[in-house]
Each structure stands twice: as C-alpha cells, then as structure tokens.
Design a protein around this nucleic acid. Sequence first.
DNA 1: AGAAAGTTTAG
DNA 2: TAAACTTTC
Length: 723
Amino acid sequence: MWLQIGYPPFVIETHTSPSFPFLAALVFLKSSENPSHPIPRKQGYNQELCLEKRVFEDMSGGCSIVWFRRDLRVEDNPALAAGVRAGQVIAVYIWAPEEEGHYYPGRVSRWWLKQSLSLLDSSLRNLGTSLVTKRSTDSVSCLLEVIKSTGATQLFFSHLYDPLSLVRDHRMKEVLTDNGIAVRSFNADLLYEPWEVLDDEGLPFDTFTEFWDRCLTMPYDPESPQLPPKKIISGDLSKCPSDTIIFEDESEKGSNALLARAWSPGWKNGNKALSAFMNGPLLEYSKNRRKADSATTSFLSPHLHFGEVSVRKVFHLLRMKQVLWANEGNTAGVESVNVFLKSIGLREYSRYMSFNHPYSHERPLLRHLKFFPWIVDEGYFKAWRQGRTGYPLVDAGMRELWATGWLHDRIRVVVSSFFVKVLQLPWRWGMKYFWDTLLDADLESDALGWQYISGTLPDGREFDRIDNPQFEGYKFDPNGEYVRRWLPELSRLPNEWIHHPWDAPEYVLQAAGIELGSNYPLPIVKLDAAKARLQEALTQMWQHEAASRAILENGTEEGLGDSSEAAAPIAFPQNMEIEMDENTLRATPTTTTIRHYEDQMVPSMTSLLSRGDEEVSSSDAGIQAEDSRAEVPINQGVVDIEMVRTEPRIDVITTMGFPDGDHLQAESSSTSRTGSRERDGGVVPVWSPSTSSFTVDEDSSYLQMQHAQSHQLITWRRLPQTG
DNA sequence: AGAAAGTTTAG
DNA sequence: TAAACTTTC
C-alpha cells in the first residue's frame, strides 16, 4: 500500500534555535525493521538521518497560508508567527478524516475538535482574520485550491510525527514546491525534534529513560514560548469560503451534550487548566497521582493532543515553579515536578518512537512478539468493552471510559494490562477502542502505552507478568469508592470484598443484593488459568520464532516461513481493503476461534465495512451486524502461519446476566444521574449511571453511533495508493 | 555490620 | 511480578 520499500525520502525544515536559524533535516525513512531478539541496543535499526544547515532569508511581502492541524492555538505557534511576520495570513483547517485510515476520530474526540476550532476561529477574529474550514478527502489538493483562490505564495505549518502525516506532508511539500509555493514547517509540538535527541553515536535511543535523560541534559533548552501575535493582517478570503464541517451527527449530540459540563476545549481554557493544575494538584502530584478516583491529574491531555497548550510553555512554567520550590527547600514540590515532567517526557517519547518506528501503532517493536498467539475472541473483547469481566476495577474503568471518554492513567494501565495479559486479546484492538472512545485519543501516546503494557518494547513491562486486578484495586481504590461509583450493582458490597466478590460468602452477597453470574458476572477468566495460558502461549511464541529463524537461516521459503515479514523490511499491512473484503465473505462460528496472527484488524472496522452504508436501526440489523463481526480478517497474503490452539480449560462465563447489549435500549447519558467531583476548588460535573437501571449499551453504540458517519468513513478503502 | 524480611514502585 | 529500597533483628 502506501509505505513500502523504496519509500521516498522526505524533507523537514525546522526552526530550531536562534543560533541555528534553520535546520533542514533530510530524513530517509527506511522501512522499519523490528529489532531482533535478544533486545537490541543502539543498532540504529530504523533510519538514517542527516542534518543540513541552510540559511533562509525571511520570506516576506506575500500572503501566507497557515495550515492548522494539531496546533490549535494562537500563542507559541511558530507557523502562525511566521505567517504574521511575512505579511497577510490565511488560516486554514482541513477536515479530511479519510486520510487517517482507520483512525477516524471517535465521537468525543470530534466533539472536542469542533469546540476547539470554533474557539480558535474566534481568537483569530479578534486578531483580524478568521479560520477557513475546509472539508476534503485530500489535504494536498485542498491546499492547492486554497492557494489558487487566495493568491497565497507560501505555506507554513507545524510538524506531525505519525506515519500518515509524515507521508502526506512530504508529498504535500513536493507538490506545493513544484507549484512554486514556498513551504516551511516548524516544531510546535515537542520540546525537541526527534532527530535532535540522539546518543553519542548519533543513533536514536530505544529506551525511554535514556531518551528522557538526554532531553533533560541537552546543551540547549527547548525554545521559549512565544506570545500570541498582537494583530493579524488577513489575506483575501472573498474567493475562499469555508465549508461547513459536520463533526457529529444527530445521534451523537445527546451523548456529547454532557461533555461540556466537565470539559472546556480551546487554547484559552487549556491555559486555565494548566494554571489550575500548577497552582493546585501539582504540589502533591507525586503523592496523589495514584488514586483512581481523585482529580489530582492535570487534565491537560486533550489540550495537548490538539496542540491547544504548548508543551514548551508547560515545560518552562514547570521548570520555573520547580526552581522556586527548590529555593524554598520544598523537596516534595521538586519531586512532583519531576514526576509530572516525566509524563510530558513520555508524550515526547511517543512522537520519537512514532518517528523512528513508523509502524509502532501497527506492530510490536520487538520482533519475536509477532509470533505471540493472540486469542482472537470477540466475546472477550465485548465483555471487556462493556465492563463485564467480573473484575470490579477493570469493569469500573471500562464503564467510566464509555460514559465519560476519560480514564485515570492508572486505570488505563489496569484495563489494558488485563486486556493483553489475562484475556490475551491482540493489543491493537484495545488500542483502537481507546482511540474510538478517549477524549484525549492520541495515536502516538496510545501506541506507546499499549506497546509498553504488551511487553513489546525493549523497556516495556515484563512479558510474563500478570497484574492482579484485585490487588491493584486495593492499591488504587482502597475504599472501593471508584468501583461503587461505576458499578452500582456492587455498591452495597463491603470493602473487604469489593475487589474480589467471587470470594465473598454467600450471605454477604445476598445482603448486598448480588447474585454472581446474574447481576454481576463471575470472573471471565480466572487468574491462574490466565497464567497457565500465558505460559503456554509464550512457549508457542518462542517455538515459532525459532522455527521462523531456522527457516530464514536455511534460506528456505517453504513451510512456516513468513520470510516476507521477518526478513524483509516490513510494509504496512498490505492490501488491507482486499483483506477486509475477503473477510466479509467468510462465515465462521462466533466463539473461540483462536488463531495465531499478529496483525489483526479491529473487529469494529470489519463490521463497519460489511455493513456498508446501510443505516442500522432495527434490532434485527443490530444482530446481523454482530454476526458479521464474528470473524477477524486474516492477512493471508502476508502471514501463512495460521494455527488453532485448543483452549485450555478456562472458566468462561456464558451467561452474564446482563441483557445482551445489542438488545438493550440505550439509556442515554442524559438520563444519568449527575454527580460532581472537586477539581481545584471548582466543581466539575461528573455523570454516573443511575443506580436503579444501569444498562450497558455501549456495544451497539460503539458500532452504530460511534461510526454513524460511516458513509464518510468508508472512503478509507479508496485511499490513494502511492506504493 | 550484614542478612533477612518487609515495603514500595514500575509508563 | 520482580527489583529496588527500607527496616529490623
């Protein structure tokens, strides 16, 4: 498809530091090779990169396009500043979600984007221009149109580091340059560009700690944040009307209505959140951040995702605060800043990883992990999504995620670790679900997080470690408040049993009104069964890895060999659309088909494609959608190993007691009880399901409402093929 | 002092 | 889980 061997080099120009006015980074992204086992050190396995100093005279006099993407702010926005310096400015936002492949933004994320754009527009209006919004399926040709209709002569934009953007931006740069347009791009998203942070041999780091140490000891500081422009001279917009962009459909509006009660998108509000955090929870951050149910985190992640808040500003403010506290001998404060900075560092690292390993959202970084026999079980997947695993902390988390689009960092770790290690579902599914549901969905961060949890990173979690949700429950939610909020059916269970109801004596359960297997599930998989299964899977993984290696060494291409994957640099999953089409034709039993395949598509996408543009409204249609979702595509073109594991004895709950999610009528969040939680003096509304009739309708919504605009989404099948 | 046992912490 | 760190004897 689009990333293949012979992938073209691309050029990124970047304004880095005053002493180095401009660096043009010429980056040859070779196809990614996964590091091989054992864990590689400093192999420089991905890219060559060379920096070339060039001097630009400031372009001025003309009219510039400033292309906004994930830098939706007017302060500390170098692209905007450059436009303002050069003369007239045309600010553009292009909504072209088809370009994102299957990472079409989820409902809550689109809600945020919509608010953010409208606030950006009003800020721009105050400064003298406005935001031109365009609906397109191809940003590059759309930019060309805007340029033609406005007579602009240059284009400024901020860098993105996900593989799709890297490719698109490179193409854009070529096309526009060929059309006589001057194109310049800037770092607005990171403290340091990925190619600035290298080890002594000039190679990228492959562990976070080393990376972050280097960032903190760079010989030059991240650039200081810039103030917003005082005034913008608008270019001629008369021939360049905005398109109306539809970010949410009718069915989504109700669910979105409550978001505004807890969140305020936009760069100004991002700044408010930043100072609220810095003047409040930051001081105790290192102590408090471990409580699942408290508002002690920064709540900055959605602002950061959309670039409403500049990380450089965050960084500089934090450092100033830290110096202040250090002078006062406030060691707790100093430590808190370090801990918080580390999470900023992880965000940096996610971009770094995405840049150096363009496939990191698709496949494990560690090579042998691609031989892990994931359990392809949509029943598990569904139970996880609906919060019906029988592990209260996991279930509470999943319910919160669905209801609010938000999850405390700790709980993200808990639910994802459970997903990968206990259920052994392919991590990409979980990642995709996070992408679809999180308010701060961020491809790079989520890829890093899931890879970390899955043990597919050189410095990830131990692979054979299974975290115990019961123990974690008592760690992060010692009084069970979090569980009780999100699992009303357990609210009368005493603390002693709240995180392991399956151990509770019958009379306790009765007193609490709980009938396990009926109104709350028994554990979907018992932990010792999961451990045994994990060990077995690991053994298989190593066998297959060894077999594959042996075959490669013998130079044979027969049998097990998936030489195309293992030996040759890897292309992005090839022929994804064909793969999907084939899949829709295949009918397989719903339950427990277990296959070895490392690169599954996400089930929701499957059903989406199989449903086509059809409106699904009747319950019948819902069932069909469910059926067609049964199979997960197998990429036969790439991987030949396809094996069926016989499932060890596992306690699987067959009747959950919950009505099937698909047949429930949606209890829209508007009927939910609204509570509130403290956040920095102010009260932030939080909605929780009403105790009386909580139903989980997440699944049908996930498939039907989430992607209700499927007719728009579908076009990713028609992505331009440049390979 | 030094081993053993307990505690904390990890994205 | 497991390794690092702290406390106890």
